[in-house]
């Protein structure tokens, strides 16, 4: 009954698409050891959202997300510039820019809320996300952007793969790491921005990292990892939406993130090969083998 509900369907589809995209893009972010970039970009998007509202005065998601995209890109640019031209390391630069942008966003948000008659209610939803506010046109936007992102990923798959594994070698073959880095970062930022409305700036980095980390546990192939990341992300989206619909007053975004984290936990514990339980078992097995062998040696002496 609930599953055929129009609102539920819209939110579930939107969350599934978000999970799918961030699972695939997160695969590259995790392998490039840039998991934190998601956190930085999503926080840095907040002033863009509020400025977009102030300048255009509309709460149209497209405009707000455009503002988010611009300030997210600006923050990435600033971070890379700082790392390049100073002795400040990536993690410090990221923490710095992220908190400055997020602080600015909060200041602007407070300012907007004090303007009388401004129809500002609802901007808060970008902080923690409000999946239930997703509308069909928001979902359509996610479908269009998501398809473009996936298409780009398929087209430049080989290039992204070699660049992620060994960027210097990629450069020696004539694949410019600068261009590939720019394209991949642009795609990741776009993916992050798409998720703001659903899970919010604070939880978005979990959506980027969790499905990819879980996927890495189950496979040793990049393509399978990206595929599993997409599946895990989409499952988290759908299940999170469903559970939060069944239980009243349960927020959707955080429930989605909890589902993703549950998958990570299961994967870290149970995955064959890389899983903790499997490794413990192997250690124990080896130990008992050694004891047996020693016993045999002793008996032969």
């Amino acid at each position: 009954m609930l599953l055929s509900d129009y609102t539920f369907q819209t939110v579930a589809i939107g969350s599934a698409i978000l999970g799918l995209i961030s699972g695939v893009l997160g695969t590259f972010a995790v392998l490039r050891k840039q998991s934190l970039l998601g956190d930085g970009v999503s926080h840095a998007a907040l002033p863009g959202v509020v400025l977009g509202f102030i300048l255009i005065g509309s709460k149209n998601t497209e405009f707000l997300l455009l503002g988010a995209l611009l300030s997210g890109l600006l923050s990435t640019l600033l971070i890379t510039t700082i790392v390049k031209y100073s002795r400040i390391k990536f993690d410090s630069a990221l923490a710095l820019i992220m908190s400055v942008f997020f602080g600015l966003g909060l200041v602007l948000l407070t300012y907007v809320q004090k303007i009388p008659n401004a129809n500002q209610a609802g901007l808060n939803r970008f902080i923690f996300g409000q999946a239930s506010s997703l509308m069909r046109r928001d979902v359509n936007l996610m479908i269009i952007c998501g398809s473009i992102l996936l298409l780009l990923l398929i087209i430049f798959w080989k290039e992204f793969k070699i660049f992620t594994f060994d960027s210097e070698f990629a450069q020696s073959l004539g694949f410019s790491p600068k261009k590939l880095d720019l394209l991949l970062s642009l795609m990741t930022v776009t993916g992050i921005i798409l998720g703001l409305q659903t899970v919010g700036v604070i939880l978005m980095s979990a959506m980027l990292v969790a499905p990819a980390v879980a996927a890495r546990q189950w496979t040793n192939k990049l393509s399978v990892m990206a595929f599993l990341g997409a599946i895990f992300g989409a499952i988290s989206g759908i299940f999170g939406t469903a559970v939060s619909s069944f239980i009243p007053k349960l927020p959707t975004g955080p429930t989605i993130v909890l589902f993703a984290s549950l998958i990570v936990l299961i994967s870290i514990l149970l995955a064959p090969g890389r899983g903790i339980l499997h490794r413990l078992y192997r250690q124990k097995h080896n130990r008992s083998l050694n004891i047996e062998r020693r016993a045999e040696n002793d008996s032969t002496i």
């Binding site: 392998l31 290039e159 992620t164 594994f165 004539g174 890495r216 192939k221």
Partner: peptide, 18 residues
Amino acid sequence: DWDFPSTVLDVVLMGRFG
């Protein structure tokens, strides 16, 4: 990073990309 999810053949094939 040799923990990259890839097989030996995958890595050797990268030499053909150029």
